[in-house]
Design a protein around this nucleic acid. Structure first.
Lengths: 75, 75
DNA sequence: ATGTGACTTATAGTCCGTG
DNA sequence: ACACGGACTATAAGTCACA
């Protein structure tokens, strides 16, 4: 079972690629550092809800589309 | 328009009351200090996604039930 | 049972680089 | 373009005392 951060990162990456954004261009859009976006997508960090919304906004999706179901992750 | 943290806090409080939990009993369940839970419910802090999941788990709901729609808050 | 101030500690998030 | 890291800085996390 994936961790929450891993699952979230995987979903963010998939959605970003769907939108044909580069990682660093997308980070810039979100007002985040490029190295931090890499860490997010690799599931190395536990982002705040505020950043989740910022990322969702730039991906033109609802946060729920990026969040795993509660029973699909280890808590 | 409410801020994200305010909207999230309001929803957490409403769901907690629905479950008939006291603030400090609920904080304990979540492994948090009751004063910190108070700040979350008042929207004074910007929690991480991990905390959101911990709280959702104890409220027996999905995170999406606690999160406002992206167009309903100021980003 | 809850709000608030004043903390300390942990970690989110930045800025610089390398291959 | 992206992975990965070191060394920062800002802020979330967590504790306690008092109202």
């Amino acid at each position: 079972m994936q961790s929450l951060s891993e699952s979230l990162g995987t979903r963010i990456r998939a959605m970003r690629k769907l939108k044909k954004f580069s990682q660093d261009g997308f980070a810039l859009q979100c007002g985040l550092d490029r190295s931090y976006m890499g860490r997010i997508e690799r599931g190395e960090v536990n982002i705040t809800v505020e950043k989740l919304y910022r990322i969702s906004k730039e991906l033109e999706c609802e946060p729920v589309e990026l969040l795993p179901k509660i029973n699909d992750i280890a808590i």
